[in-house]
Design a protein around this nucleic acid. Structure first.
Length: 408
RNA sequence: CGGGCCGUAGUGUAACGGUAGCACGAGUCCUUCGGGAGGAUUUAGUCCGGGUUCAAAUCCCGGCGGCCCGACCA
């Protein structure tokens, strides 16, 4: 893409109504735009990042036998009455349509997926089943905050698993723990992300969260200093003094953002919707469920929180909006021609270049490139042309080197 | 939802109750071109509603909106 065609512009200064690092950098660099507190538009650069994160998650869900669906955002009141959550889910956004009918904007989809599964699950032969979607969720957060970390409208991948036995759920739950770490690995968050015990288990003692250490996070966890494999959420720390994995008693306290969570739901949602199956023994039993959530928009914010410097964002290559940022310095025809040719070549190779073909000073192009944070910077200038080469520099490294154009 | 702070061009910031100014951006032109370069010129603003006053960006009341702290976060 030619930067002269890019719809957005960068801001030299941070808007004064954003305080968090992720919101400041993403806004300045033109990835997002705030419409209201906790409600953001995703602009061309931001949407590219979001799609990459989504695709990583999608690939991992498909590899774990998930089948992708898309459920409605609008949920009839009756579904939520069925589980008692029309009244009990405080963040539920309710609205009337046609002046009469009550609907909720989906904050999660158990109330939709359970009755949906009822239409296809009859026998143990239909189980297990794994359905997932990547979709916009709505929650009436009393206080939206920290840019993309806590919003009222956000993207969420939610997978629901359906099992014939608790054992089968346990196995899949275990598998999803591994799959989730793979997602965080691919998004560049693995090193700072901890499997964390949390409350909320209706079916088992705990649920598990995936917590990424970062200043802007709003959770507090205690990381076991013995195995460093497990952490305990502060909300249940008092009730859980020792590490359940290794019995360690020493913990390090850390501020974190919850980037994912997994629940064993058991029959909490299958029962109210009468979601049953006929087992091998001929008896009718409740389907056992699990659910697994991870939010691409929050992930995007978290990545920026932990991967930036004073000049701007440093995207991991896996989620970067582009792989190369090609800068043409100077306006003479020779430079322009060489840069144009390299741009065409890279485009033909499908390696996703962003080409700064604008008539701006060198300093301005460098500053913007650092702000946007594309992993590899390519420069064509009088200097490089003398050597018949192009300068290449990684965003997270200081040194640059010249390579032959033919090497790209 | 409680508490605090705050709403002035696209962005950031000034203006004692008395002419709304500056910088950046954006537009046009010229000169520049390895770290947000220089010059000329143009553009654009007091969140909304009421009140006090000869006079309100400024004071008062109400609303709306934003940020931060807390509560909340299946």
């Amino acid at each position: 893409m030619r930067q002269s065609q890019l719809a957005t512009k960068t801001l030299r200064e941070a808007p004064k109504d954003e305080q968090s690092v992720n919101a400041i950098l993403l806004t300045r660099a033109g990835f997002i735009d705030k419409l209201a507190a906790g409600v953001y538009s995703y602009l061309p650069l931001g949407l590219r990042v979001l799609r990459k994160i989504e695709n990583i998650i999608r690939e991992e869900m498909l590899a774990a036998d998930g089948q992708e669906i898309l459920m409605p955002v609008m949920h009839p009141r009756e579904n939520w009455e069925q589980t008692g959550r029309w009244e009990n889910f405080e963040a539920l956004i309710k609205l009337k349509i046609a002046g009469e009918k009550d609907f909720a904007l989906g904050p999660t989809h158990e109330e939709v997926v359970a009755p949906l599964a009822k239409k296809f699950v009859f026998s143990y032969k239909d189980l297990p089943a794994y359905l997932f979607q990547i979709q916009t969720k709505f929650r009436d957060e009393p206080r939206a905050k920290s840019g993309l970390l806590r919003t009222r409208e956000f993207l969420m991948k939610d997978l629901y698993s359906f099992h014939a036995s608790a054992q089968d759920l346990d196995n899949y739950y275990q598998k999803m723990t591994t799959v989730y770490f793979k997602i965080f690995e691919r998004c560049g968050l693995r090193d700072k992300t901890y499997l964390t015990l949390a409350s909320g288990g209706t079916f088992s003692q705990f649920s598990h969260e995936f917590q990424t250490v970062c200043e802007a996070g709003e959770d507090t966890i205690f990381i076991c200093q013995n195995c460093k494999n497990l952490a305990i959420n502060s909300e249940i720390k008092n009730a859980t003094p020792a590490c359940p994995a290794c019995s360690g008693m020493e913990f390090a306290k850390a501020k974190t953002a919850e980037v994912g969570n997994i629940f064993k739901l058991g029959t909490k949602y299958s029962a109210p919707f009468d979601l049953k199956f006929k087992d091998r023994d001929g008896r009718e039993k409740n389907v056992i469920m699990g659910c697994y959530g991870v939010g691409p928009t929050r992930l995007m914010g978290t990545i920026v929180e932990i991967s930036h410097d004073d000049k701007g964002i440093i995207w991991p290559e896996s989620v970067a909006p582009f792989k190369y940022h090609l800068l043409a310095l100077g306006e003479n025809a020779e430079i322009k021609k060489a840069a144009d040719e390299l741009y065409e070549k890279l485009t033909a190779q499908r390696v996703e270049p962003l080409y700064d073909d604008r008539e701006l000073s060198a300093g301005e192009k460098f500053a913007e490139a650092d702000l946007i944070g594309i992993p590899h910077r390519l420069v064509i200038s009088e200097k490089t042309l003398k050597e018949n080469s192009v300068e290449i520099k990684k965003r997270n490294k200081k040194e640059a080197k010249l390579i032959k154009i033919s090497e790209l």
